[in-house]
Design a protein around this nucleic acid. Structure first.
Lengths: 181, 181
DNA sequence: TTATCTTAGTGAACTATGTTAACAAGCCGA
DNA sequence: TCGGCTTGTTAACATAGTTCACTAAGATAA
């Protein structure tokens, strides 16, 4: 799985092949099939690892102020995407079709990340910081917003780090300003 | 190019191969290499066609009200992405690395789409509808916002049409409300 | 008219890929 | 000790992208 992640990073998802993985770990290509059903299963395992890290990255956000917490979750989301491009692309851009397989544990890890966001929005609602609205709707908007930034940054070189930072801050500022009561 | 677009739609980008393209148009596979340098060149040609359609879709927006025009551009963007999933994914998600090649004409078609958005924001600024800010920064935020929606909708089946519509409306409402002076 | 060049096309072949089949060696409980 | 499970292997197959050598038909120039 480590070698797979490395090789996807080095050669891109399209250029990723099993034989180089085997070569790097010093085994023959067919040995991979003793541990994973097929290429997709190996990628799915890498994705699961990514969701574990993603969940921990979001759980690390502990801003008390309700509105500030939403913004900090957005910042943590963008940071994770930029610092874990391989994981992020596999999880949300390249192979989200592999999201429906996996153990219950992994399923929960995945839904858990979105719930963190919805909870934060609900908390802000309860605190009277937001105009009343469906927290899930607003969470989807936030998700799409930060995903858009990461997705563009990961694919388009002209979205460099400072551009991403400026876009993120302006985006979160406008959204929070737009929903503030 | 038509057959290529069809086959990418039918079998997905990963399952897209040249021999079926040749078979569909009644030629041998090698004939494709008489007209395109390689597989990427064929895909690049499809992408150029997509940008032409994309530009025309945005040019068709003629809302006079400055703030309304920005929102309608966002709606047109999302609509184009959903109605042209193959083009959209190739252009912005799968192979944006093929964006730097092509004729001057095609280059201009691509930059032109973003300029339409920047112009609309500048117009709203001039009309005094926005808080003063860099129009390019705000345009990037808008772009990332609608791209995020389309990117999630195209990849995740749970983002159905009504969810997309609600998310789009809430997103545009919050962003415009956030920047309104 | 004839010789040559260009254009449009073909099938065979090479390499790389995902994947399966058949087989071998070591470990481990009965 | 023996049979089965685990962990490997090599050989092989089908499908990819791509290159090569070749053919046939027009266009063109002498």
């Amino acid at each position: 799985m480590n070698a797979a992640g490395e090789l996807i990073l080095e050669r891109g998802y399209d250029g990723f092949a099993l034989r180089p993985v085997a070569e790097r770990i010093g085994y023959s290509a067919t040995t991979i099939y003793l541990h994973f059903a097929d290429k997709d299963a190996l990628i799915a395992a890498v994705i699961d690892e990514g969701f574990g890290r993603f969940l921990r990255a979001l759980q690390a956000v502990d801003t008390p102020d309700p509105l500030g917490r939403i913004a900090d979750l957005g910042r943590a989301y963008v940071r994770f995407g930029l610092e874990n491009r391989v994981y992020y692309q596999l999880m949300f851009m390249q192979r989200p079709d592999l999201l429906n397989v996996g153990s219950r544990e992994h399923q929960r890890e995945r839904t858990g990340t979105f719930e963190i966001l919805v909870d934060a929005v609900q908390r802000a609602l309860d605190a009277g910081a937001l105009r009343p609205d469906d927290p899930v709707d607003y969470s989807r908007v936030l998700w799409a917003a930060v995903h858009g930034i990461v997705a563009l940054a990961v694919k388009l070189p002209r979205f460099d780090d400072t551009t991403v930072a400026r876009t993120t801050e302006l985006m979160l500022d406008l959204l929070n300003r737009g929903i503030e009561r």
